[in-house]
Structure formats: structure tokens, C-alpha cells
Nucleic acid binder design. Sequence first.
DNA 1: TAGTTATTTCAATAATAGATGAATTGTTGA
DNA 2: TCAACAATTCATCTATTATTGAAATAACTA
Lengths: 117, 117
Amino acid sequence: MAHSGRHQDSDDIVARKLTALAHPIRLAAIRQLAAAGPAGMAAGRLGEHLDVAPNALTFHLQKLATAGLVESQREGQFVYYRAVFDALLALTDHLVGACCSETEERCGPRCPTLRDQ
Amino acid sequence: MAHSGRHQDSDDIVARKLTALAHPIRLAAIRQLAAAGPAGMAAGRLGEHLDVAPNALTFHLQKLATAGLVESQREGQFVYYRAVFDALLALTDHLVGACCSETEERCGPRCPTLRDQ
DNA sequence: TAGTTATTTCAATAATAGATGAATTGTTGA
DNA sequence: TCAACAATTCATCTATTATTGAAATAACTA
């Protein structure tokens, strides 16, 4: 009995991604990067928009990068960061999945189960 | 310049909710409660499913409750917890909103902007 | 009321995350 | 090569979060 209702592996990974998002600065950063689209945005410019010191920004962007939510690429003097949309969408789908049981749909058009099958 | 791209207030609140979710046990708990539906589930039974000690479970459930993601109600000897679906959905909508800029829709049917307007 | 189950509280400790300032590395252009 | 800019690394300190075991509160049942 009590064969743990935990998706041990998947919950750990998802928790890590949520931890990465769960900070006001990082939330603002990902929003800004999302708005910037696939081209991304240089770290410095991002820092200006968010009013965050360069070293602090690096700290937070690394958390997002480790979680796979952003990618970076050096271009000359600048380092461009961009949002990884697939990862973001997968994450939201996972959360929405928690709203629906096997028998009940509660999240309407958001629902990945409805969409995929 | 640099009029901070941060939604100071809203990002703080969302970050708090994400922090509440960002733990393997709490993630498993909310999923289980979501599956249990509006009726909710007694703390003890939840603890068995998740294989978590009672005091630890209380600790984590309180975090979720403080964030408004679960509610509880004593019924005799038992305390029933249930997911607050509205809060969960609002949270996912907020995250999905980060996927879309003012000009680009990237999240398809998930998108709250598409849905609401 | 005594015993049992359910849940929470408390206290101590360990682990992690965040903020800050100084120093460092990489790149460009004079 | 030197000065300026972009970004990262490092070291330190503080604060928060998580884990644990023991004790306390609440409700039910015999």
C-alpha cells in the first residue's frame, strides 16, 4: 500500500524549473525575454530594463539557464539570452495537468489532455 | 529611462505562489488534491499516498494554503484539504502570458489573451 | 474518562538561496 | 597596447527554507 503517488523523477525536475521561475526578478526577466522573441536580448539591456546589477542578473539568468528555461549565446562583446518557449509551454502544460483528474476536465482550452488526444 | 520592466506587485505575488509549488512534495500534493476534486482529501490519507510524515505534510500544506493554492476544512477528526482550482488556473495563465509578446502568439490554445478577448 | 487516532506545533539543526562589493575575463576600438 | 565596456566569477554575509524528533492539541470510541 501507499505506493507513493509521487512521480519522483518528473516532480523533481518540474520543481527545479518552478524554483527557477519563482523569483520576481527571474519572472520579470523571462517575461522580457519572451517579449523579445527568438532573437533574444543582450544581458546588459535586459539588466537596464529590469534595473538589476550585472552580477545579480548573471546569477539569476544562470538559474534560468540551468533549468533549461533560457539559452544564451555570445555575440562579440555581448551575450544574448532568449527564452526557451518549448520548456515554458511544457511547464505550464504540466501545471495545468494537475487541474484535471483522469475523469474530470477543469481547465478548459488550456488542457493538454484535450489538446493532444 | 529604464522604467523597470517589472510588474513589481504582480510578479511578487506570482513568485510567492510559484515558490509554494516549487517543491517535489508540494507538487505531488497538489496533483493528488487536484485528482481528488472539489471534495478534497483528508491530510492523513494524502500523507499515506505521498509517503510523507504528518508533521512534514502540515508544513508543506501550510505553504500551499498561505499561497492560496489549497484550502482546508476540519470535519470531525479529519482535516480535508482541497485544491483551489481558480488560483491554479490563474497561475498557469500568468505563466502562459509570458510566452506571448504584445505582437506574437506562441502558446496556441493555452493563451489567455486569445481566450478572454 | 482513558485510550486511540488525526493533526498541528515547537525547537533545533542543517541546507540553500539571495544580496553585495571587489576582482576577473573577454571583446572592441582608439 | 591601453582604455572602455560587457559580462562573469568570487567571497562574504544574511536570511530563508527544509528536516527531524518530541510534545501538544483535537476529536472519536469504548
